[in-house]
Amino acid sequence: MSVLSVDNLIYGYSKGTPFETGALRGVSLDFEQGEIVALIGHTGSGKSTLLQHLNGLLKADSGKVLLEGVDIHSSKEALRKCRFNVGLCFQYPEQQLFESTVYKDIAFGPKNMGLSEEEIKSRVYSAISYVGLSEEYLQKSPFDLSGGEKRRVAIAGVIAMEPKVLILDEPTAGLDPMGKNALLKLIKDYNHSTGSTVIFVSHNMDDVASVADRVVVMNKGQVAISGTVEQVYSKGEFLAELGLDVPEITNIFLELKKNGFDLGETAYTVENAKNAILRFLGKGEEI
């Protein structure tokens, strides 16, 4: 059984007005235990709307969200369970820090779950280590931290609830390359060590290629394609039609093909592009 699934979700904003937008038009998806799924699509494709359905912040006009097989809107208890088990971290989450210390901010979620003081403490300590910050940070004010640090604290606040599914809306937006790589590594490590499912939205196809097991492409409120990174990125021309960028390396391969160099496969990292080109040139044995 999938840990989280959505079945034929339909939802519209500003219904019946000329501004009707961002709607979902029949989305069905299954998320499996332990996988990292990247959700991509241009602005207005319905990605963020979908995320807000996954933990019950929005309720679809029709269709269901199932957490471990139970409709999250079937009872108050089911919805409460969903809020704690599907942790949603919004875009620019650092704007939502509000407590006087980092400790209190991370403890906010677990506290609301009604956990004991000791349990809360142990969760705060493990969450701060997951996001790669030392325990010294716990007594600092979140407002004295750098942007990248604040973002990690905000993510720690969601992780501390130990959700079965962690959802991140554009977690790397606005970070420099170093901060971005550190955050992507954090996502991967967290997924490895806890076995939790991670769903993240990104505009950066290189980021997606480096961490995702599976890619779901949204377009006009529907799932346009879903598959492994290789399967999706090999459809470079189709992605471009949807207004998405393919990774620069994939683009080089598409252009080589147009120029008569058919390397027989697609590549999305420098490493696999190098290997494919060396093979093409008959130097494959050397690697």
Binding site: E248, I252, V270
Partner: peptide, 9 residues
């Protein structure tokens, strides 16, 4: 990236 690929080649 194109440069990184060229260097690696």
């Amino acid at each position: 990236k194109p440069m990184e690929l060229a260097v690696s080649l």
